[in-house]
């Protein structure tokens, strides 16, 4: 009986860990890249902890199919050890290139050294690594997280057109470099207007529930009608904050301006409903840029820049309904 319990537990855990395999889209080679054709690329993905991450994997598969690339995706379940194992197995299989979305920033030197020794170029996706030897990877394709904040800040200043504004900020999880950058960028973005200032800032830990709780606190702590805008480091916290504002009888989107970052489908729904004003996209389409630069590198040895930044595009309510339709199955 004891053994039975043990197996039951193991089975449960395995069931829990088994990811759901996605089948990529079937739309074929619209702009197949000749040089990239027949390339085999290994992609060590962190996991599927968020809708964004799932979209990144889905787009990587979709774009690979378009280009005729044979993509092998390995899901690391949030463990660096699994990523290292995956990279070693990619090297053993003799892939043409490796994409790595590193779960943490340190501890990659040894395994990337092995890839380098095997002459396999490595491109980092959406996160940088700490290493003393930048020759260990060909390039890193990530967003510019400071710029994301800047775009949000500049939008707010422009929207206000000179009006005074007391902004409340809902930060992500304290300690993440992303949070420091999105904060810094926003502060830079609003610095041109002396009358726009952050009056309160608190951490919503990137979740809807905490975003809502923090916003409730802001509403209670500030004099009625004195909050003019909310800036949230991600859309999920903003969605929570929107609920808090509505439950307090306020009108987000008009009475209180709402700007956040990420561009996940649900914020487009909120924008279409008039509850949010703007979002800055953190594009999940990281892989296609990596494919392009790998194709160029393979073709004539064009060495790409060490850091390729994806654009931080601003989205407004006018395109929200269409964007929601475009994204809802991706995430």
């Amino acid at each position: 009986m004891k053994a039975l319990a043990k197996y039951g537990a193991v089975a449960l855990m395995m069931a829990a860990m088994a990811g759901c395999g996605d089948k990529g889209g079937t739309d074929k080679a619209t702009k197949a890249n000749e040089a990239a054709a027949a390339m085999t690329i290994g992609f060590s993905q962190i996991g599927s902890e968020s809708g964004w991450r799932a979209a990144e994997t889905k787009l990587a598969k979709l774009e690979a199919e378009k280009r005729g690339i044979n993509l092998k995706v390995s899901d690391a379940q949030q463990q660096q050890a699994n990523q290292i194992k995956a990279i070693r197995s990619f090297i053993a299989q003799g892939v043409d290139a490796i994409l790595l979305a590193p779960v943490i920033s340190s501890g990659w030197d040894e395994v990337l050294g092995e890839a380098k020794a095997a002459n396999i170029p490595v491109v980092l996706l959406d996160r940088q690594i700490d290493t003393a030897d930048p020759s260990l990877y060909l390039s890193a394709v990530t967003s510019d997280t400071v710029e994301e904040g800047r775009v949000a800040g500049r939008w707010l200043v422009e929207k206000l057109a000179g009006r005074d504004c007391r902004v409340v900020e809902i930060q992500g999880t304290i300690g993440a470099s992303l949070v420091a950058n999105r904060k810094k960028g926003f502060e830079e973005g609003i610095s041109s207007a002396g009358n726009v200032q952050i009056v309160r800032t608190q951490s919503g830990e990137f979740t809807r529930a905490k975003g809502k709780e923090v916003m409730e606190g802001f509403i209670k702590a500030e004099a009625p009608g004195s909050i003019c805008a909310v800036y949230a480091h991600n859309d999920d916290m903003m969605i929570g904050a929107i609920q808090a504002m509505k439950e307090a009888g306020l009108k987000p989107g008009s009475e209180i301006l709402a700007v956040s970052i990420d561009a996940v489908p649900d914020i487009f729904k909120a924008m279409a409903d008039g509850d949010a004003n703007a979002t800055v996209e953190l594009t999940p389409d990281m892989a296609s840029r990596a494919y392009d630069l790998l194709a160029a590198y393979n073709k004539d040895g064009t060495v790409p820049p060490k850091w390729v930044q994806t654009p931080s595009t601003l989205y407004l309510p006018d395109t929200a309904a269409a964007e929601y339709e475009r994204r809802k199955d991706l995430y």
Binding site: L12, M13, E49, D266
Partner: peptide, 21 residues
């Protein structure tokens, strides 16, 4: 502890890793 670790995985399977609104 078993359910603490595995339970979140079960929940993620039900929601397919997204916030199920």
């Amino acid at each position: 502890l078993i359910l603490m670790v595995a339970g979140r995985g079960i929940a993620q399977m039900i929601t397919e890793g997204r916030v199920l609104t």
